[in-house]
Amino acid sequence: MPVVVVPMKSLPLAKGRLAPVLDASGRRALAQKMLDHVLVTLRQAGLSSIRVASGAGNDSDLNRDVTTAARAVEAEGATELLLVMADLPYLDSADIAALIEAGRESAVVIAEAKDGGTNALLLRPPTVLEFTFATHRPSAALHAERARAVGIEPVFVRRPGLARDIDTPADLAQLVSDHAAYHVFRHVA
């Protein structure tokens, strides 16, 4: 089974793009609720080696934080890494099973977000490619390019639970209407 790393901005910095509709306290609460959901889902999927990788302070850099985590788990002997973003409130254990199953076909599995970003990666070994998150370009395609550059044809997993992250006020409004657990944020809908 892979070692799981869940990248997460520090709570005070999380979900900054929602500032027009949520105050700092609301953004922290939402980020924590989604992180908790992702962690519970990973455990329900039978994964036990789970870490949260969070940047320190205001200079958090997702690529640096994830690279550091990948190197650390590889140095500890892990041969497979599953990165799952912390803002996936629709994630379920079948989504995780689909990622792991796809890992039988390729050493690089990419879960593409609805906007072309990357919401999860399964990598064998953990440092097989350079990360390209948050580059203001669709990172799923960039991760695929990086995989091909090292001779690996990646597999894409496209499932609603992996594609639907919460980045914009419209995403949040949809989440509030979809899930009773998020109705506390209904004032933004």
Rank of each mutant, 00 (worst) to 15 (best):
Q32M: 14
V40S: 11
I96D: 04
A97N: 12
R148H: 07
H143L: 10
A29W: 06
D178H: 13
L42R: 13
T132D: 06
P138G: 04
L11C: 08
D115N: 13
E112K: 08
D167V: 00
A147D: 01
L42D: 08
T132F: 10
S139H: 02
L121V: 02
D59A: 09
E112W: 00
S25W: 06
D59E: 15
A107D: 12
A144T: 02
L83E: 03
V128I: 15
A86K: 09
G57Q: 06
P126F: 07
G57N: 04
L175F: 05
D61A: 04
A107F: 06
G77M: 11
S106K: 01
A147P: 06
A45P: 03
A14S: 07
A86H: 15
A147Y: 05
G26P: 04
A163W: 02
E130F: 09
A189N: 08
S10Q: 14
A75K: 14
S139K: 03
L122T: 01
F133T: 02
A163D: 05
M85T: 01
D167K: 03
Q32N: 09
L11V: 13
A75Q: 14
A70F: 11
A86N: 14
Q44L: 15
A69V: 01
P126L: 11
L162A: 00
P160L: 02
D92I: 02
R124G: 02
A140V: 11
R148C: 12
E76Q: 15
